[in-house]
Design a protein around this nucleic acid. Structure first.
Length: 553
RNA sequence: UGGGGCGUCGUCAAGCGGUUAAGACACAGGUUUUUGAUGCCUGCAUUCGGAGGUUCGAAUCCUCCCGCCCCAGCCA
């Protein structure tokens, strides 16, 4: 599989080069903030970081970047762990929290003050913004910039002791207010936040900013390659500045492009909006691009890993075709899913020459791709249901399913012929009266006549009724994430992203079933018991459908 | 001349001075098939954003130009 021979990318090339000069084990980290659920974009990062550790026999830490207590919650920590595990990765003993380093980080800040490289600023948030300047104009120094070391030390301790209100003071690095890089214009190191932290409670009322936390955390953990997304490129000089000034171990930050997928959005903020406005049930709605949503939908973790492998790693902003993800899912499921029969929109078929009350047990192959999967029995009787789409009263040329006077094969059973079409008062076809050919048991003709069409079916008396849910893209717009071409998110929502079929007819084998199946000729489905005790079958993905393409033309 | 990035097939993406410019998805044909599925076969960039230059030789090096993305949270 493609998981074995992963394609080359610039990060691997870099690591290969690094390994030539210094023989240290590769050490990466996946650093989510526990303020929401993981999505397929995070999967790219997880697969990259953990994948590199596996490939180079190194280590990958799971580290929670929990420096903003007002947004973070323990429930997210748990959900993230679950998602990473489900994806198939193991951090072993290497789970850390930035909050583990709060004492150390505070000491680092004190060191900078002592070196004259940090100062306490009294400016208000608004003033700080003004003093920062703009993209094209330099900023100007704060009046507090030249406080003495002693004064700064005293003030910083008072900040820590809770003697000031939120927003009253901050600790800033003393770098360069004229820098073209805004991140270097005396960035804030610590702010006052009188919030309870999900792990360390009320121990602190000053919290370090991301920039003052991330690099040092990487350094403490002896991370060799700190991989992050492109928007942090501008932060790299600052990342290095802290490590230099503190004179501690230097990991290297390398940036890559985040994942974009068409027909969906991958921004936490917008995903949250979908949940809060009720456009989806929750974060794990099977239409969501979250890992929990995909898990419920039935996407195998192997398929997601394969997908992440195939999309590659580069620095160019790109939008990956959702069809590639679906391809990976189909490829995995084709190999592994048991084939069963289910009729979603039933049409009654009575076999007029089949004995009343007779039931035959037909042998059905479980998976033609896997000889070891064996066979099972399927009951067959006088009344069966077929799919409404599989009958046309006035079929076009290339249609080779059932029609008046036509013959078709019921998979694993018999060849039948449509003798009579029964309609209701409205003129709708409600029943087909057919004859079966007793000489075609299991589906093969003895006189050598070719039967082009093969239909799935279910015996009326033995059918098991269950709810089936069909999903489609959440958005009709190909690129809902791009606000330039799609300014209104809501108007591009796909009104048909969910179709519920209350009573689909399934073969009895599916009673008490768990896991994923291929409903023959329809698609792959996965049992979901999240929202009801009765199993619901979620459609993972359809089968490729070239007939539908022909019809479209 | 604010700073930092990116431009190779419809979409991803290899390529790192000498290749017929990988591969995958998508698409289009054909074939096998008791799933219009799967499988198999074939086709799909004389050209690498553009223009110059260096070189025996350039997608790869240099120059200029063009286009796109990110940055002005006490978010990460």
């Amino acid at each position: 599989m493609s998981e074995v021979d992963s394609p080359s990318n610039f990060i691997q090339n870099k690591i290969d080069e690094d390994l030539k000069s210094e023989k240290v084990a590769v050490h990466t980290r996946f650093p989510p903030e526990p303020n929401g659920h993981l999505h397929i974009g995070h999967a790219k990062s997880i697969c990259l970081n953990f994948g590199l550790a596996v490939k180079y026999s190194g280590t990958c830490n799971l580290r929670f970047d929990d420096t903003n207590p007002s947004k973070e919650e323990t429930k997210y920590v748990k959900a993230i762990q679950e998602d990473v595990k489900w994806l198939g990765f193991d951090w072993g003993d290497n789970m850390f929290f930035a909050s583990d380093y709060f004492d150390q980080l505070f000491e680092f800040a004190v060191q900078l003050i002592q070196k004259g490289k940090a100062y306490v600023d009294d400016l208000s948030p608004e003033q700080i913004r003004e003093y920062r300047g703009t993209l094209s104009e330099p900023g100007k120094d704060s009046p507090c910039r030249n406080r003495t070391v002693e004064e700064n030390l005293k003030l910083f301790q008072k900040m820590k002791a809770g003697e000031f209100a939120e927003g009253e003071k901050v600790l800033r690095a003393k770098i360069d207010m004229g820098s073209g890089n805004l991140n270097m214009r005396d960035p804030i190191l610590y702010r006052i936040l009188k919030a309870t932290h999900h792990r360390v409670g009320d121990k602190w009322c000053v919290y370090p900013m991301y920039d003052f936390t991330h690099g040092q955390s990487d350094s403490i953990e002896k991370v060799t390659h700190s991989l992050c997304t492109l928007e942090f490129e501008d932060h790299r000089p600052l990342y290095q500045w802290f490590l230099d000034e503190l004179e501690i171990y230097h990991p290297q930050q390398i940036e890559f492009a985040r994942l974009n997928l068409n027909y969906t959005i991958l921004s936490k903020r917008k995903l949250l909006q979908l949940v809060e406005e009720g456009h989806v049930d929750d974060w794990d709605d099977p239409r969501m691009p979250t890992l929990s949503g995909m898990r419920r939908r039935g996407y195998p973790p192997e398929a997601i890993r394969d997908f992440c492998e195939r999309i590659g790693i580069s620095k160019s902003n790109s939008v990956v075709d959702f069809a590639l993800l679906e391809h990976c899912v189909r490829e995995d499921l084709n190999r592994t899913a048991t084939r069963v029969m289910a009729v979603l929109r039933p049409l009654k078929v009575v076999l007029v020459n089949y004995p009343e009350n007779q039931v035959e047990e037909m042998d059905a192959v479980n998976n033609p791709e896997d000889p070891d999967a064996g066979t099972r029995k399927m009951p067959f009787s006088r009344v069966v249901y077929i799919e409404q789409d599989d009958f046309m009263e006035d079929p076009p040329k290339k249609f080779f399913r059932l029609g008046p006077g036509r013959e078709v094969r019921l998979k694993h059973a018999y060849v039948i012929k449509c003798e009579e079409v029964v309609k209701n008062e409205a003129g709708e076809v409600v029943e087909l009266r057919c004859t079966y050919d007793p000489n075609t048991r299991s589906g093969s003709t003895q006189d050598g006549r070719k039967i082009k069409g093969t239909l799935h079916w279910v015996s009326a008396d033995h059918a098991y009724k269950a709810e089936v849910r069909l999903y489609d893209h959440l958005f009709t717009h190909e690129n809902p994430a791009d606000e330039k071409v799609c300014p209104d998110l809501k108007s591009s929502l796909n009104p048909d992203s969910l179709e519920i079929i209350k009573e689909a007819l399934l073969e009895p084998y599916l009673k008490n079933a768990k896991g994923r199946f291929q409903f023959l000729r329809l698609g792959y489905f996965c049992v979901d018991t999240t929202i009801s005790t009765n199993p619901i079958f979620n459609r993972v993905v359809t089968l490729r459908d070239t007939w539908a393409k022909i019809v479209k033309k």
